[in-house]
Design a protein around this nucleic acid. Sequence first.
DNA 1: ATGAAAGCGCTAACAG
DNA 2: CTGTTAGCGCTTTCAT
Lengths: 364, 364
Amino acid sequence: MTNKAIGIKDVAAAAGVSVTTVSHVLNDVAYARVGTETRERVQEVARRLGYGPNRLAQALRTQRSGMIGFISEEIATTPHAGRIILGAEETARAHGYNIMIINAASTGSVDTREQDVAALLDRQVDGVLYATMYHRKLSVPKNLTGLPAVLVDSEDISQAVCSVIPDEEGGARAAVQTLIDAGHTRIGMINNTDDVPATHSRLTAFKKTLADAGLPFHPELVQSEHSEVIGGYEAAVRLLSPGSRPTAVFCYNDRMAMGAYRAAGELGLHIPADLSIVGFDNQQLIAENLYPGLTTVALPHYEMGAWATRNLIAAIEGKTDLTLFAAHPTVLPCPMVLRDSVASPKPKGASSRAAPDSATRANA
Amino acid sequence: MTNKAIGIKDVAAAAGVSVTTVSHVLNDVAYARVGTETRERVQEVARRLGYGPNRLAQALRTQRSGMIGFISEEIATTPHAGRIILGAEETARAHGYNIMIINAASTGSVDTREQDVAALLDRQVDGVLYATMYHRKLSVPKNLTGLPAVLVDSEDISQAVCSVIPDEEGGARAAVQTLIDAGHTRIGMINNTDDVPATHSRLTAFKKTLADAGLPFHPELVQSEHSEVIGGYEAAVRLLSPGSRPTAVFCYNDRMAMGAYRAAGELGLHIPADLSIVGFDNQQLIAENLYPGLTTVALPHYEMGAWATRNLIAAIEGKTDLTLFAAHPTVLPCPMVLRDSVASPKPKGASSRAAPDSATRANA
DNA sequence: ATGAAAGCGCTAACAG
DNA sequence: CTGTTAGCGCTTTCAT
């Protein structure tokens, strides 16, 4: 391919032994025994010549490529995808595997997705990772079943393939509990309108956590909108309009929280003094840079990528049977990331007015 | 590897011909001539059996793997990296190649980076793409030279390897020109403090554009800080403190612009009425979601990934000599992305005061 | 117009 | 303890 022309036989020749011996010492095979002196000589020669095995030839011979196919929907759309890839790549490499990446347009048809898998199969990948850009249920291409595969951040509708997803509900409960622990009793929620698992589980968790704390659930305190900044802004405007506004709000995601920050700012509400906010996703760019820093729930992207890869490899190597996991997705925890957007509510009756605060803050 | 056990010889047997014939028709080789009827039969059988070539075997035989190694520093850190990968992947696939990805810790030593390249070489990649997470100069691992390779978003110090980078200066000039065209004459700049190419070229462009427009350069109107939101905030506070503040500011990047937005808000300055802002990078999450939307300059990540891949493949296939490009990096344009943060300056003397504005905005 | 056979670089029986 | 040899699935001369 390049200057890298030295193969096993060059090493053999230079060391004055057969290729078998070279192969044996380089892979230090258990059975075949080689003299210590020969072994060292071979190793030394291999190093000196800069020998590197041709993984293609190895793969062809051993029927194992050491390659893992990674299909990702819209690689670029979200920084989250990068974390999954990173988790997968690092784990793979630690086990001597490499990642072959394929982008699947999220708009692609079933046929297209089957072709994506087929392309990977032609490459003789040992297994495939299929990642979606947000948690949802999908029907996997049928050529995916029957080979080692794991879904990352999504579930197989037919429950035939193993998958790993975030613990939406646990994360949401922790988020709401954080607010309750700070002393809030009148808590609002800004939710998404899309029919995805997260929308439902986060709302469920919200209600449950309130109930467990003996707090009443007020339907008018949950406002739903499109899950973007603008939607968060609009929902927040409704939620925070004068009247009996909540003292804290749990947002569907960090983007919506960003919208809530703006609404709060326009209403002259200080965060966290007048209003506590918690988000979801821990999108660095937003959560870290909002002022004050946003307390939120992290999605375990890296961990999902790592878990998926670890188990995929175990399956490839026959140490695990993935079908055992297929019936129920593995759920990974979503840790809280505490920053500065949560505080105790102000003493009753001391509600704040708009304009003066903005001016005050400006002097900061 | 899987159920995909059908190979060329199965097709041959089923079609009643030799493997040679099958190979010939499936690759429709120019020289060898095959009967039309035979040809069709072979194709039909191959399709029916669901034959797919074993790319590993092909690669071993032809000494061409059809794989491109992609080394990326900190894949996950920035959404930008995703765009480069996407550009590379789509281009590669369109040409029948696939991408094998490797993550290089940006903290890695030279040795480590050489090992990354070596890992790819063991896999017999036909060429390698080396991407950094921001534009800079670097010394490439020495086993990278001598094989088809292109640097994405960085330059080789020794000018031995081909590279593609963004047109920092052109982008910055367009940004400043946008401000000038809107009628601004007193323009500030919030710059980065890191010693990277962008810091210098954006400042240079700033000065030049001012000069070309016959506008004076006021050193006190450029404030530098760490290139994050907080740095942008601090620089903006200095720049906008009462006195002869600028009516517009050009920010090193969108994150710093985000900080400037906050500073402006605290000072009761409306964007764009009281202050126009333009950023750089077009980080969707920020630029699109700030209020008002940030006018900024887009970095051509996708395009760089695509260009690099296109040329790498041309080189692999002997259609181009990359060394011809090595001496000077190829520069791709950075298009302006117009949103709502730029307007004409207010008529002279009508400078605004702090507090009242905040209250006003709250009623919006 | 089609087929036999060699061989890409490597591993793993099987012999010595 | 070490070497011979037969493939892995495919392409490609070279024969026919």
